[in-house]
């Protein structure tokens, strides 16, 4: 019996199993990421996956969408967009300042509310200068003279008070826009979230 175990250990079977499992995991991650990417619609740097959480997805798709957006709401309950890079395609960095400009009447249409959060790249909230890392449709956002809305995204509080400000974490970060009970423009795919543009802070 001990001969058998010695043979197993020396033959490479154990090492083969370990390597096979590792490769299986890596392959799965690559496949699921690729499938999720194919389902992702990215406009202005904002990515959304409409079929996440929907019943009726096939074996590969449901696995890929659970990996991309685990246990999220169905799109008609809440639409999610994420962004990790700015309009120029550069990764979002906490030491830079950005502006998100919504033209007049172009805030996300909804029957409930929307919210914008800044998190670390893993999606976790981090402590920020303002003590909160979200702005939403009830934040009392200040409109510009033409009815448009600018949200400033930077780590420190803007010098001129009264600006709409979303505090961002240090290092690379991720933005997530949630729109609960998305309106017709979102459901039919017409609405596009405006790009995140870098500005001088």
């Amino acid at each position: 019996m001990s001969n058998f175990f010695a043979w197993v250990a020396g033959s490479g079977v154990v090492q083969g199993v370990i390597m096979g499992l590792t490769f299986a995991y890596l392959t799965t991650v690559l496949i699921l990421n690729a499938v999720a990417k194919a389902q992702t619609r990215t406009i202005n740097g904002w990515s959304a996956i409409r079929r996440a959480g929907q019943p009726g997805n096939g074996l590969l798709l449901r696995a890929a969408l659970q990996k991309a957006l685990p246990v999220v709401n169905s799109f008609d309950e809440a639409a999610y967009w994420t962004a990790t890079s700015d309009a120029a395609g550069r990764r979002l960095q906490g030491d830079r300042a950005y502006r998100l400009h919504f033209a007049a009447n172009q805030l996300p249409p909804n029957d409930a509310f929307w919210s914008l959060t800044a998190t670390d790249t893993g999606g976790y909230q981090v402590s920020t200068a303002s003590g909160t890392s979200s702005v939403n449709s009830h934040s009392g956002l200040v409109e510009n003279a033409d009815g448009s809305v600018d949200i400033l995204l930077q780590a420190h509080e803007p010098s001129d008070a009264g600006r709409n400000w979303l505090a961002t974490p240090r290092g690379r970060f991720k933005l997530m826009l949630r729109v609960y009970l998305p309106g017709a423009g979102i459901v039919d795919g017409e609405y596009a979230v405006p790009p995140v543009v870098e500005v001088q802070s």
Binding site: G16, V17, M19, G20, L21, A24, T28, L32, A63, P70
Partner: peptide, 28 residues
């Protein structure tokens, strides 16, 4: 490395399928 490599390939193929199949269960 013949036995090692053939074991690895078999585990790789079946393991990938199983992981994808069970991924939603693992997540939830």
């Amino acid at each position: 490395i013949v036995l090692l490599a053939s074991t690895a390939v078999v585990v790789w193929v079946f393991g990938s399928f199983a992981l994808i199949y069970f991924w939603p269960r693992i997540t939830v």
